[in-house]
Structures are given as C-alpha cells and as structure tokens.
Design a binder for these strands. Structure first.
Length: 679
DNA sequence: TTAAGTTCA
C-alpha cells in the first residue's frame, strides 16, 4: 500500500482520546492522556501485531460487544476512525465462532482502496494468506461487490454476519444496502447485522432499524483545536489564503504543513496564483512556501509533489478538493483551513439535467476535515464559518446521494433482484418519486421493462452490465449491428467521464489541436472516443503516445480495464464479439439504440431542442461538433447545466433511424419536419 | 465566445 492512502484503522500511532467543546466560538479541548505503549523488542513481527491489537480502543469492549451481538440481531456501532472497529470486529466474530460451518462474515466499504487495505491488514493479523480465509471483492478482482453478490444469493445464505461500515457517508450503495438487508433480516433471524457509523446519525440509523441498540466505542486521535470565524466569510477563498499566510508568518516552518479544502480545479488554480503573488510580495522576509495542488483529475505525475517530504526550512500548503477528506491522507499536516463548502452533483429529474452546485458540507465532513490535522500530532482547524453554522446549519443542508442522482441504474438492479414495488421500497430517505417514475419510464422506453413494469429479456441482459442503462442498451443492441467490439470500447470510454483529454492552461491551443485530430472524418464524439481508444491500442497502449496527444494515461488505463470487464460480460450474456469498423452508420445505429431517448434537433436560431421533453440546449464547447459541423439531428450522452444548458458527447444521426429503432417511442410525425420553423 | 467533485459497479 502506498502510504498516500488511508491507513488501515488501528495503525500504531500514539493515542489520545479527545473530546471537544465549543463555547461561544472559543474552543476548549479536553483531553484524556493515555500512555504511549512500549513494546518489547524481542518479539516477532506476528507477535507484535497481536500485541498491537490489544492496544486498540475497541479491545476493552471485546466481550461486551460480542455479548451485545449475541443478544441482538441488529446493532448500530458508533466509533471514530482509529478505534480499530473495522479490522477487529470481524476477527472477534471469527474467534467467537461465527465462521464455523463455512459461514462468512461480510464487511462493506465505500471505497475500493479501503476494501483492499483492510483485507490485507486483517489477513496479516490473522497470519493467513490474503484470498484464502480473508479476501476482498471489488471490480476486476473477484467478480463484484456485495450489491452484485445479491444477484446470485438474494438471502445472503452463506453469511452469518454483515457489517455495513462507514454508514454515515450515505452513499447510494449503502442506502440501497440498508433497504435490502433490513428486509433479509426479517426472514433470516440467524443473520447478524452491524451498522457502523460516526456519531452523528446513530439515532437515525437506530430508528430505521426498528430501534436497534447503539454500541459506542471511543476513538483515538491527537487533539484538534477548532477555531471559528466571528462572522461567516463572504470571500472564503481570500479568507483561506490570508489565514494560510498568517499561519505561515507567525509560526516557524518546521512546525507543520497547511491543508486548505477548496471546491474544485478552477478555485485551486486561482488560489495557487494568488498565493504565489502574495509570497513574492513578501520576498525573502518569509520562509519558502511550497504550493501543492491536488484534485482527482490532476495528472499523476503532478500529484506526486504532495507526498514528497517538506524540505527543511520550508512549509507546504496543500490546496485540495474533498479528495483529501477520505481518499487521500497526507502526512505532516498540522493546520487545516476549512471554508466549509463542497461541490455536489445534483440531478433534476424533471429536466434530466445534471449540475454541480457549491453547497455547505455536512457535519460528518467537517469533522473528517478537522481530523486531517491531528494525524501525526496535535492539530488545529480553522473553520471559516461560525460555531452557530456548525451546530445549526450544516446537517440541514445535507442531502443523501440517493436523493440527487439519476435512479435508472438502481431501479434496473433492484428489478433484477426481484424487487418490483419500488415506490414502497423501505428507503431510509426515499428518493423523490418523480426520480423513480422517470427511471421507470426510461427503462420502459429502452424495452428493459414491459408494461407491467417487469423485467424483459433485454432488461435481464442489460442488468448484467455495471453501466448506465442507456449504455447497456447500446451494447445489447450492438449484437444486431455486428459491432459489439466497438460498442464496448465506446461504453468504456464514456463511463470514465470527462477526464480523458488533458488541457493545461499554458498549452490549450496544442491540446485543442490534438483533440481535433480525433474528430477528423467522422461526425460525433462517440466515434471520436472510439478513435482515441483504437489509436492508443494500435500503439500497443503507449504512454508516450498519450503525452503527445494530450490524453490522460490514467483514464485510458481505466477505460482498458473496464473494457476488459465488459468483454467478459458479453460472453456471459452470449453476445458474440463482432467488429464492423468501417460501417460508421452501423455503429451510430447501435449508439442510437441506446441513446434515442436523448435526441435533439437543430432550430433556426442555431440552438437545439430536445425532442421528447422539449427544452433548448447547446452542443457543449468541448464537443468536436461544436465548431465544425452543424448537424440537424443528434443524440447526446447527457445534459449538463454549467453556465448554459449543454449536451455532452454528441453524435449526428438520421431522424428516420429513430422511427426505425424505437417505433414505440417515435412516430413519423415527430421527425418529419426536419427543420423546425418556430420555437 | 466556452469547459465538472469524488466515489463505485
């Protein structure tokens, strides 16, 4: 494991239990000092692991916890990071006999890296080889994750215990899991359920799981002092920079590094410029300040900088998105500056439009951010909002993921599990019924569901693919057009999102030129993506080629992995692998078979109008079709709202294809007047 | 006259 990632809980740090109390914006830190554990040196590595296990905060609660699990079918476990709950509880259960007769203990994680590292740690502690007694299951390794395991074993018969970890993160997957496992627990009284969460939502989880008891385990961390501003900062970006500079000039550089949480790439770039400018103004009067930007789409070779040790006499300022909240751990951070905002995706089921909104963070996030300063010593967190906001506002603004995403894929998965009555599914926080209806409508249009809302043969094949239903449909339909090979490449490229083309600020013209090469001689972004993939494949997956063409290697590797998986799934649903590279119309018909619900036609004023749910939209400026061609009819992958309403990933089509491919959805009259006369 | 956070399958 690179140490860039979250340590497995229960790493051997010095431990301090902390409790924080805030009075009128002044922070008090109460701490209960524990002694540092001294270990005899003569022990073997394995013995040391065993004695380390006994120093974890969860250890004194072992018997009490096992008793509680024995006495109750469902238990809510509250424990901070560092309590050891994730690595220890499954082992306690194993030692107590819950794995006898070949039964399994499951523990779910929201992130794959965490799943891998926790499994590695537990197998080490048990002295067994990873993949035998202890294993993990993520995409590309093993065949899936728990949600997909339900497909083969809907009652989870081989499990004696299931622990849903990090439940407070409220991801789409954990929320669906809640509904499924609550249902299973009813007819499997022998199955134990553990829901593990940070303190904040414990009561809510308990209420949802029929008043399940709450079991508390104290965490351990270095103390973190929290400071609030007296009034919320109007210009938080400027306030964050000023705070960072103040820390820098008033404390010696060897004292610790600074981490600032910002909302995105653009903001990080502005902050970087401003910081450079201001430190230049201060000249040699201050110690060197090394500025390290970090966000998910930053090319790998530029990411390395944050993990290099800070040179003597200098200080690092890390400018990060929320990637540094859970996915990345940076050592040496002593100061965290938290403006309290995050960009969140929001989906409007009425328009089908996605946008990113800057919203206040949740309390769980605020605590997680603050904790990033207390990993290797006592830390300080400067919140650019008031204690009043923290205590009263933050959670009110937090909406679970399930309420702001496109539900089409979830609905298809649940249908394939045999859950038909979705409007009455026991969601902890139900998605808007409009979103469910919209999803059902789409699946019906794609012929994945029949009029009774039951899964069709097409739908059953589609459900095998871990993709958005329109992409799955494109693949299933590609059988007919003899181009499944092209379809899976396009699906893989589309499913990695918008991080394929690299466009550095200082080389925008070069990057745009490189990109336009992939659009030559064809008429759409889907085919351009196919061309990118195939060109890369022709160079034997060359990294150099990626650099020369302003393509992100990391994204391409992901596309290759996903494509590999899709290839396997083609076999499983018995679609023959066929290639038809020169018949562009055939490929475009396969695309249209998936994306026909997303059709739009040109208007006289140059904008487009979506056909089925009419609204005025534009071709996204990143599209190869934006400048060159002005196609009359297009299908698009998605609608996004940024400064305008845009179609992203657009392909030119012939309107008669719509009637030919989806006669139940389009009539001739929908497409006859190729040019619309008025708005 | 212009470009989106981070996860996961």
């Amino acid at each position: 494991m690179p140490d860039a990632y979250d340590d497995v809980e229960g790493g051997d740090q010095t431990e301090v239990i902390k409790a924080e109390t805030v009075v009128d914006g002044v922070n008090l830190v109460e701490q209960e000092e524990l002694s540092v554990v001294q270990l005899p040196t003569a022990k073997t590595a394995f013995e040391k692991l065993q004695s380390d296990r006994k120093t974890l905060p969860v250890y004194p609660y072992r018997e009490e916890l096992l008793r509680a699990i024995n006495d109750h079918q469902i238990l809510i476990i509250v424990g901070e990071t560092g309590s050891g709950k994730t690595t220890q509880i499954p082992q306690y259960l194993h030692e107590a006999g819950y794995t006898s007769r070949g039964r399994k203990i499951g523990c779910t994680q929201p992130r794959r890296v965490a799943a891998m590292s926790i499994a590695a740690r537990v197998s080490q502690e048990m002295g067994v080889k990873l993949g035998h007694e202890v294993g993990y299951s993520i995409r590309f390794e093993d065949y899936g994750m728990l949600l997909r395991e339900f497909l083969g074993e809907p009652d989870l018969a081989s499990y004696s215990v299931l622990m849903v970890d990090e439940a407070h993160e409220r991801t789409l997957s954990t929320d669906i899991l809640f509904g499924l496992v609550k249902d299973i627990a009813r007819f499997r009284p022998d199955l134990k359920l553990l829901i593990s969460s940070a303190t904040l939502d414990a009561e809510k989880f308990s209420d949802y799981f029929d008043s399940a008891p709450i079991f508390k385990i104290p965490g351990r961390r270095f103390p973190v002092e929290i400071h609030y501003t007296k009034a919320p900062e109007a210009d938080y970006l400027d306030a964050a920079i000023v705070t960072a500079l103040q820390i820098h000039v008033t404390h010696p550089p060897g004292d610790g590094d600074i981490l600032i949480f910002l909302t995105g790439q653009e903001e990080i770039e502005i902050a970087e410029e401003t910081l450079k400018h201001k430190t230049r103004g201060l000249g040699s009067k201050i110690a060197e300040l090394i500025i390290c930007p970090i966000y998910a789409n930053l090319p790998t070779e530029l990411q390395g900088k944050i993990f290099e040790p800070t040179p003597e006499g200098a200080r690092k300022v890390v400018l990060a998105t929320n990637i540094a909240e859970t996915s990345l751990t940076i050592d040496g951070i002593k100061y965290v500056i938290d403006p309290g905002f995050v960009k969140m995706k929001s989906y409007n089921p009425r328009t089908g439009m996605e946008s990113l909104l800057v919203t206040p963070i949740s309390k769980a996030s605020a605590n997680q951010r603050a904790g990033r300063s207390g990993r290797t010593g006592p830390g300080k967190c400067f919140r650019l909002y008031t204690a009043y906001n923290y205590y009263n506002d933050l959670d009110d603004n937090t909406v679970p993921e399930i309420q702001r995403t496109n539900m089409a894929n979830v609905v298809l998965s649940l249908k394939s599990l045999g859950i038909n009555d979705l409007l009455n599914f026991d969601f902890m926080d139900p998605p808007p019924s409009e979103a469910l209806l919209k999803a059902l409508e789409l699946l019906y249009a794609l012929s994945a569901l029949n009029k009774q809302g039951e899964l069709t043969k097409v739908g059953r094949r589609m459900a095998e693919f871990p993709l958005d239903p329109m992409l799955s449909k494109m693949i299933v339909a590609s059988e007919k057009y003899q181009c499944s090979d092209e379809a899976i490449s396009i699906a893989a490229m589309l499913s990695i999102g918008n991080s394929i083309f690299y466009r550095p600020k200082d080389k925008q013209v070069h990057a745009d030129n490189a990109r336009s090469n992939f659009h030559m001689g064809n008429v759409g972004d889907h085919l351009a993506l196919l061309k990118v993939y195939n060109s890369w494949k022709d160079t034997n997956f060359s990294t150099q080629w990626c650099y020369e063409n302003y393509i992100q290697v990391r994204s391409m590797k992901r596309a290759r992995d996903i494509r590999g998986q899709l290839e396997g799934l083609l076999e499983r649903v018995e679609i023959e692998k066929t290639s038809n590279p020169n018949d562009l119309d055939a490929i475009k018909k396969a695309i249209t078979s998936g994306f026909f619900p997303h059709s739009a036609k040109l208007q006289k004023n140059g904008s487009y109008r979506t056909v089925k749910h009419p609204q005025t939209v534009q071709i996204h400026p990143s599209s190869g079709l934006a400048q060159v061609l002005i196609p009359r009819w297009v299908v698009y992958h998605e609608l996004v709202l940024t400064s305008k309403e845009y179609m992203r990933q657009v392909t030119q089509i012939k309107p008669e294809w719509l009637v030919e491919i989806a006669p139940h959805y389009y009539q001739l009259k929908d497409v006859e007047d190729h040019l619309v006369s008025k708005n």
